[in-house]
């Protein structure tokens, strides 16, 4: 191919566009919010409409401790990402692992609650409307926490072998957006299930 005339003048140096990773994650969050909205609406619509027991008032206990764990993991991941942006890799790894531990603790709490509901109160997804809506809404959220934990762990493994440096901080921030979203959803789920729904 011979040299060809370039019809377009050279690009100016000042042309800046948003980060595509963040835009895409924002798009995913919008779509996920719509999914959660539908499940929340279904939960609220069916509050008090179960034909048989057990009812939420009888069996649910407010998981204050585990909620604090999950919400504080938003802080730790925020500072972890900040540390990475400032090239402080050690602080990043510490805070990152702490985030995973806090998220894991939350999942342990959910597991314990489900175990108690199933074996002590006989509440399963097919028992009544409360069971159907409760397990699907809380379960959908727990699935998102689990998916987040898997992604966080992959980053942690890369960080341990020294592959996560300052230049990856934009990608880490995208993951941190997802984690904040999962935490924000829990605020809604908590309010709906443990406050309004009882």
């Amino acid at each position: 191919m011979s040299a060809m005339a370039n019809p377009f003048p050279q690009a100016p140096a000042t042309w800046r566009l948003p980060d595509r990773g963040k835009v895409a994650m924002a798009g995913l969050i919008i779509a996920e919010s719509a999914i959660f909205t539908i499940f929340v609406v279904a939960y609220l619509f069916y509050v008090g409409k179960s034909l048989t027991g057990p009812t939420p008032r009888e069996v649910l206990e407010t998981p204050i401790f585990y909620t604090i764990c999950l919400l504080s993991s938003s802080l730790t991941i925020h500072f972890a990402a900040k540390s990475l942006a400032r090239e402080r890799v050690g602080a990043f790894l510490g805070l990152w692992v702490l985030t995973i531990v806090l998220g894991g603790t939350f999942m342990y709490g959910t597991g314990q609650e489900w175990h108690r509901l199933i074996y002590e109160h006989g509440l399963t997804i097919s028992t009544n409307l409360f069971g159907t809506t409760y397990y699907s809404l809380v379960g959908l959220h727990a699935f998102h926490v689990t998916a987040g934990l898997v992604m966080l762990s992959i980053v942690a493994i890369f960080a341990v072998v020294g592959r996560v440096q300052g230049e990856q901080s934009r990608r880490v921030e995208v993951l941190s957006m997802y984690w904040h979203f999962v935490d924000a959803v829990w605020v809604v789920v908590f309010t709906v299930v443990y406050v309004l729904g009882r």
């Binding site: 409409k49 097919s126 159907t132």
Partner: peptide
Amino acid sequence: GGHFFDTQAGG
């Protein structure tokens, strides 16, 4: 065995 759209169980 959920009951989202199951009128028999109040859905």
